[in-house]
């Protein structure tokens, strides 16, 4: 049931608020537009929307944290 296309679809749901909104508005149509298999589409039908938002929020926070961390990480060494 796992394919690169399915993982890409999940990655988009986890990171793109607009894609997430389109999906939550019409799950089947959004999944079909990504050429997912019937099994994959069925698994998305009852996905917990609240959990999806919580996961997306958590991933966003992590990305922001990494960005801040990366900016300061090697700064003292670059001064030399």
């Amino acid at each position: 049931m796992s394919t690169p296309e399915f993982e890409s679809f999940l990655a988009r749901l986890y990171t793109d608020p607009e894609a997430r909104a389109r999906f939550l508005n019409n799950r089947i149509a959004e999944a079909q537009s990504a050429n997912l298999t019937p099994d994959q589409i069925a698994s998305l039908e009852h996905l917990d929307a609240d959990a999806l938002e919580a996961a997306a929020h958590s991933f966003t926070r992590k990305r922001q944290h990494k960005l801040q961390h990366a900016k300061r990480r090697w700064f003292p060494f670059r001064l030399k």
């Binding site: 890409s8 986890y14 990305r63």
Partner: peptide, 22 residues
């Protein structure tokens, strides 16, 4: 975990779909 797919960086560890293929 998977952390990226289709050129998208998730930014953290995402649980993979649990099936024989994965």
């Amino acid at each position: 975990a998977f952390v990226r797919a289709g050129g998208i960086e998730i930014g953290h560890m995402a649980s993979p779909p649990r099936n024989a293929t994965s």
